[in-house]
Amino acid sequence: MNIISNKIEGNFENKLPFVAYRKSNSVEVSGFFMNDDDLDFSSEINESGFVFAPFNSDEKAVIFSADKAEIINEKFNLNEELTLNISNSVVNSSDKLNHLKLVEKTIEEIKKNSLKKVVVSRKEDIQLHEFDVLITFKKLLKTYSNAFVYVWFHPKVGLWLGATPETLLNISDNNFKTMSLAGTQVYKTNEEVIWKAKELDEQQLVTDFINNQLKNISSKLKIEKTETVKAGNLLHLRTKVEGVLNEEATLKQIIRGLHPTPAVCGLPREKAKDFILKNEHYNRTFYTGFLGELNIEKKSSLFVNLRCMNVKDKVATLYIGGGITKDSNPQKEWEETIAKSKTIKQVL
Rank of each mutant, 00 (worst) to 15 (best):
H154E: 00
T226M: 14
P17K: 01
A61V: 04
C308Y: 01
A163H: 09
N79F: 01
N283Q: 10
L140R: 02
I324S: 04
E336W: 05
G183Y: 09
T164A: 04
I276N: 10
N283W: 13
Y150A: 02
K312A: 04
V149G: 10
K15Q: 12
T250G: 11
V91C: 03
A249M: 02
N295I: 05
I344N: 11
A339C: 11
E293H: 01
N175V: 12
A20G: 08
L78Q: 09
G232N: 13
E104G: 07
H129C: 10
N6V: 02
M179I: 05
K112F: 10
H236Q: 13
H236P: 07
T261M: 10
G158W: 09
C265K: 07
Y282P: 00
E202N: 03
L141Y: 08
K252D: 00
K188Y: 07
P155V: 09
I107R: 10
S42F: 02
F12N: 09
Q203T: 10
I86R: 14
E293L: 10
S300P: 05
D36V: 06
L78A: 02
F148S: 05
K342Y: 13
P260Y: 13
V29E: 00
I45S: 07
E13N: 11
S57D: 13
N35T: 06
K142T: 04
L258T: 12
P268W: 11
A316G: 08
S24E: 13
F12K: 08
I296D: 04
K222C: 14
G323L: 03
Q346K: 15
K222N: 15
G183M: 12
M1K: 15
K240E: 09
L140F: 12
K220T: 06
K105T: 00
S43H: 14
A231N: 09
D132K: 08
S43I: 14
K142P: 03
T337L: 04
I217N: 06
V29Y: 01
G232W: 15
E248W: 10
E191I: 03
S114H: 15
N46A: 12
V206M: 03
D36C: 10
V229N: 00
G266C: 13
I71N: 01
K112Y: 10
S94N: 11
E270G: 07
S65R: 15
K198P: 07
T228R: 07
I63Y: 09
N310R: 14
T189M: 06
L134Q: 06
V91M: 15
K177I: 06
D95C: 04
G10K: 14
K117H: 14
K273E: 10
F32C: 06
P268T: 08
